[in-house]
């Protein structure tokens, strides 16, 4: 049954997806690199709120702030230590992307190893933590209860999106970021300090993604080291819907995917008895359809090759 809860879930999930996917598109557009460490930003954010809750710090706003700083710092570190040196040497973007893959794997198991130790120190299970944090209280409207986490999510995502918009559109550094995205060489010729601007961009991207990770943890309510990996498919599908180019379409993609995962599956379940475990299939179908029908040729680089369905008439 598609009821209020599906709709509310769609909203909460979609907002979390949006906050996670926007910085992915942003960083891709500026650097042409799909950054797999993005998955770690999510996990990092999720664990920030979960571990803070575990030691009794249950203010969600503090958690969001700390997550932002951690995610941003990690992103800048990656850029300075790995991406920028590779870029300067003239490495292919594919190579930089693979390096980010390596970082992703390294961090992921570093997190596992650290949690393993924490497990012993804190004497509690840290590999699977229930999120305990407090923001807005839940609100009951008639028969519908709106969860406090949902309100936190709405507030946070609105603030984050607005802030991103303002920074990119209204500030000097935002203009510099956009200039680099449009044309690296031209931007550098016109005296934009590429290194510093990119570091700022990465800080913004990593921080926002980690904030998204907090929101994702609020939606999941339980945090595991796989929490970021679990939504690889969704996040990348959303970014592909945005063509890894348009921030607006990325936001739209977040709701398309979350709607697919909540409402479409529910409808198919009710009418055709489709098992709910088929959820990833629907997301994958969305991804394939987008790639087939609106191939993101412009941003992703592509082949001027067209599949012809019907042969054209000849003389």
């Amino acid at each position: 049954m598609v009821g209020v809860s599906e709709v509310l879930n769609t909203v909460q999930m979609g907002l979390a997806y949006m906050v996670i996917a926007l910085p992915l598109t942003l960083s891709y557009r500026v650097t042409q690199v799909i950054n797999f460490v993005h998955i770690i930003f999510i996990t990092l954010g999720a664990y920030t709120v979960a571990l803070l809750g575990l030691i009794g710090l249950t203010n969600v706003w503090i958690a969001l702030g700390i997550a932002f700083l951690l995610g941003g710092a990690l992103a800048v570190l990656d850029n300075v230590a790995v991406f920028e040196p590779l870029w300067r040497r003239g490495s292919d973007v594919l190579i930089i992307m693979v390096a980010s893959l390596g970082l992703w794997i390294f961090y992921k198991y570093l997190i596992y190893a650290v949690l393993d130790k924490l497990f012993i120190i804190l004497r509690t299970n840290t590999l699977s933590v229930l999120v305990r944090t407090e923001g807005f209280p839940s609100v009951t409207l008639g028969a519908v209860t709106i969860d406090g986490y949902l309100i936190d999510t709405v507030v946070t995502s609105v603030v984050v999106t607005l802030a991103l918009y303002l920074i990119l559109m209204k500030t000097r550094i935002g203009k510099a970021i956009r200039a680099i995205a449009d044309n690296q060489t031209l931007a550098e010729i016109s005296g934009i300090p590429r290194g510093r601007v990119l570091n700022f961009m990465w800080f913004l991207a990593g921080g926002t993604a980690a904030v998204g990770g907090v929101l994702w943890a609020l939606f999941q309510t339980t945090v595991t080291p796989e929490i970021g990996d679990q939504i690889i498919l969704q996040v990348f599908s959303i970014a592909v819907i945005g063509g890894l180019y348009s921030l607006t379409k990325t936001a739209l993609g977040a709701f398309i995917v979350s709607g697919t995962e909540n409402i479409v599956i529910a409808v198919l379940h009710d009418t055709f008895g489709l098992p709910l475990s088929f959820r990833p299939f629907l997301v994958f179908s969305v991804l394939l359809i987008v790639i087939l029908v609106w191939p993101p040729l412009g941003a992703g680089g592509g082949l001027p090759y067209r599949f012809r369905i019907r042969p054209r008439a000849r003389r």
Binding site: I232, L233, V240, S277, F278, P280, F284, G300, G301, G302
Partner: peptide, 28 residues
């Protein structure tokens, strides 16, 4: 075949997604 014209990053992601989907399917 359908994804081959969209550049290496998209191809990679599509196949990655396919693999995950296969695993999730098998889990269920």
């Amino acid at each position: 075949y359908p994804t081959l014209r969209v550049g290496p990053a998209f191809l990679g992601i599509t196949v990655l997604a396919f693999g995950e989907m296969f695993r999730v399917f098998m889990r269920n």
